[in-house]
Measured scan of single mutants.
Amino acid sequence: WLKDDEATHCRQCEKEFSISRRKHHCRNCGHIFCNTCSSNELALPSYPKPVRVCDSCHTL
């Protein structure tokens, strides 16, 4: 799980985070992405409801 202060850019699109481009953790891989690159939800065994995942984890 990557800490918020360790990420300054989206792991996928590499756009810089700002007040309007917020950080979101993928609940599967733990990396930090922008909203555009992590707008999917997936049912994971460790969560009772579908949770936010990055595009890469969603296509696995």
Rank of each mutant, 00 (worst) to 15 (best):
W1V: 12
W1D: 15
W1M: 15
W1Q: 15
L2V: 11
L2G: 10
L2D: 12
L2F: 10
K3D: 03
K3H: 04
D5A: 07
D5S: 07
D5H: 04
E6D: 10
A7R: 11
A7V: 09
H9G: 07
H9T: 07
C10F: 01
C10W: 03
C10K: 01
R11P: 11
R11M: 15
R11T: 13
Q12P: 00
Q12W: 02
Q12E: 07
C13I: 00
C13T: 01
C13N: 01
E14Y: 06
K15L: 08
E16P: 07
E16Q: 05
F17N: 00
F17Y: 01
F17V: 02
S18C: 12
S18V: 06
I19L: 11
I19V: 09
I19H: 11
S20I: 12
S20H: 09
S20V: 11
R21C: 00
R21K: 08
R21N: 01
R21H: 04
R21Y: 01
R22G: 08
R22E: 12
K23V: 06
K23D: 05
K23F: 05
K23G: 11
K23A: 08
H24L: 03
H25Q: 14
H25V: 13
H25Y: 14
H25T: 09
C26K: 02
C26H: 02
R27W: 09
R27L: 13
R27C: 10
R27P: 15
N28Y: 06
N28C: 13
C29S: 00
C29K: 00
G30I: 02
G30Q: 05
H31L: 11
H31G: 13
H31Q: 11
H31R: 09
H31M: 09
I32E: 13
I32R: 12
F33V: 13
F33W: 03
C34S: 01
N35T: 15
N35D: 15
N35V: 15
N35R: 14
N35F: 10
T36N: 15
T36G: 15
T36Q: 15
C37P: 03
S38H: 03
S38F: 02
S39E: 13
S39M: 14
S39V: 08
N40V: 05
N40Q: 12
N40E: 08
E41T: 09
E41K: 11
E41Q: 11
L42C: 13
L42T: 10
L42H: 14
L42V: 13
L42F: 13
A43D: 12
L44I: 10
L44E: 04
L44D: 14
P45T: 13
P45E: 10
P45W: 06
S46V: 06
S46N: 15
Y47S: 10
Y47C: 01
P48M: 05
P48K: 08
P48W: 03
P48Q: 11
P48E: 14
K49T: 07
K49D: 12
K49Y: 05
P50K: 12
P50Y: 07
P50F: 07
P50H: 05
P50V: 10
V51E: 05
V51Y: 03
D55N: 00
S56L: 14
C57K: 02
C57H: 00
H58W: 12
H58K: 10
H58G: 07
H58Q: 13
T59V: 14
T59N: 10
T59R: 15
T59C: 11
T59E: 12
T59I: 11
T59L: 11
L60R: 11
L60N: 09
L60C: 02
L60Q: 14
